[in-house]
Simulated assay, not measured.
Amino acid sequence: MYKHLLVALDDTPLGMATVTHSVSFARALGARITFFHAAPDLAATGEGSMLHSLDRQAFTAESDMPRHAVLLKAATAARIGGVECSTDALVSDHPAQAILEAAQRHACDLLFVSSHGRVPGLRGWLHSSVTRQLLQIANLPVHVASIESNDEQADANRALAIVAGEHRSIAAVLTGLQQLDRAGRIDGTIPDVALMRQMADYLRQFPARLHHPKEEAFIFRLLRQRTSEHNAMLDELERQHVLENTLIDALFTALARHGHGDADAAEAVTAAVQRLSGAVWEHMSLEETVIFPAARRHLTSTDWSAVYKAFSAHHDPLFSHSPEMPMRQLFARIATALQ
């Protein structure tokens, strides 16, 4: 049986569906995963070449953005799923060959890819032609998880892939908070309070003010319209959304005390991080194991179209160019903290 999967990822929203499928697949096999991302050469484009000439630091950040974003979310999903994983990335304009070489480099025994089909507007390279090319040149078994653009579950798949991706971003930030706090306690050093404050600000700005309200306005509301079976659970999840806001405020208060040098502030930060992390992990687990499967069963194709339209209308600021919330460098610092 297969023991080490090479999972090829691109930076489209459907890439998160690939992560979800591959983690479940690996867990069933008792296998480990190497997530691999091959990015095109930005310097080979006119815009990239100009950026490289004008601002090499910005060029590096722009080049690294997809790799860090994709792999950070994938590694977080594997950690949540209890699957051992590592990550690798390469700049290449020949993705099929790069995937195969990565599998050989890491001694993988199965290639796991998803074929997105012809999905208008997606910039990823894991479309059907790359999958076909990989099947032609591979000297290893290839498992193709089909994520088609034209089946009746297309909008459901795309919508839940976005929501799951946002959950992985939230989970990565929480894990980063825990790692920074734990490192300070183990080493007896002062944690990076400024970075922890940035992470807390992300949790306040994105999930609390955008992600959660859209869950309630679309997924929760539509599920209530289709069935009353889960109303009690939905009431509890909405209560938890309010509680998370309170816990985020408590974390900010503890971090402010730490910055002022209060004697017991370190213990207060640890307690605030643990309470917030525990609450959010439990909350996301209930959504992903109970509510989202129920939504798949009960929501109509028209419902899913509305959900997808709502969630695709915004971008996760952790991985975007949002001028209102300059978070583009934060994800790299989180990735470093999690290493």
Rank of each mutant, 00 (worst) to 15 (best):
M1R: 15
Y2K: 14
L6D: 00
A8F: 01
G15A: 09
M16S: 11
V23A: 05
V23E: 03
A28N: 14
R32Y: 01
I33A: 10
F36T: 05
F36W: 04
F36G: 05
P40K: 13
D41K: 12
A43N: 13
A44T: 09
S49L: 10
S49P: 01
M50V: 10
L51P: 06
L51G: 12
L54T: 15
A58C: 03
F59M: 04
S63V: 08
R67V: 10
R67C: 06
H68P: 00
H68T: 15
L72F: 00
K73I: 04
A74T: 06
A75H: 13
R79H: 15
I80N: 12
I80W: 07
G82C: 06
T87N: 08
D88P: 03
A89Y: 14
V91L: 09
H94T: 15
A96M: 08
Q97C: 00
Q97M: 12
A107D: 15
A107R: 09
L110K: 06
L111D: 04
V113N: 02
H116D: 04
H116W: 08
G117L: 02
R118C: 05
V119S: 08
G121Q: 04
R132P: 00
I137T: 05
N139T: 11
L140S: 14
P141A: 09
P141V: 04
V142W: 03
V144H: 07
V144Q: 07
V144I: 13
S146F: 01
I147P: 00
S149L: 00
N150G: 02
E152M: 03
D155W: 07
D155M: 08
D155A: 14
A156G: 05
N157V: 12
L160K: 11
A161N: 01
A161Q: 07
A164N: 09
H167P: 07
R168F: 11
A172T: 01
L177P: 04
L180E: 12
A183E: 05
R185Q: 14
T189H: 10
I190R: 13
P191N: 06
P191S: 09
M199P: 03
A200Q: 07
Y202H: 08
Q205L: 13
P207N: 04
P207G: 06
A208G: 11
R209D: 02
H212M: 08
E216L: 07
F218L: 15
F220L: 00
L222V: 04
L223S: 10
L223C: 09
Q225H: 13
R226F: 02
S228V: 02
H230R: 12
M233G: 15
E236P: 01
L237Y: 05
E238R: 11
R239D: 14
F252D: 07
A254F: 11
L255Q: 03
A256H: 13
R257A: 13
H258M: 15
G259P: 05
G259F: 05
A265L: 10
A271Y: 08
A272N: 09
Q274V: 11
Q274T: 13
R275F: 04
S285W: 06
I291G: 08
I291Q: 07
F292A: 08
P293T: 08
P293A: 15
R296I: 02
R297F: 10
R297C: 04
R297W: 10
S305C: 13
A306I: 03
D316L: 03
D316V: 02
P317W: 07
E324F: 12
M325A: 12
P326V: 03
Q329P: 00
A335H: 10
T336Y: 05
T336V: 07
L338D: 03
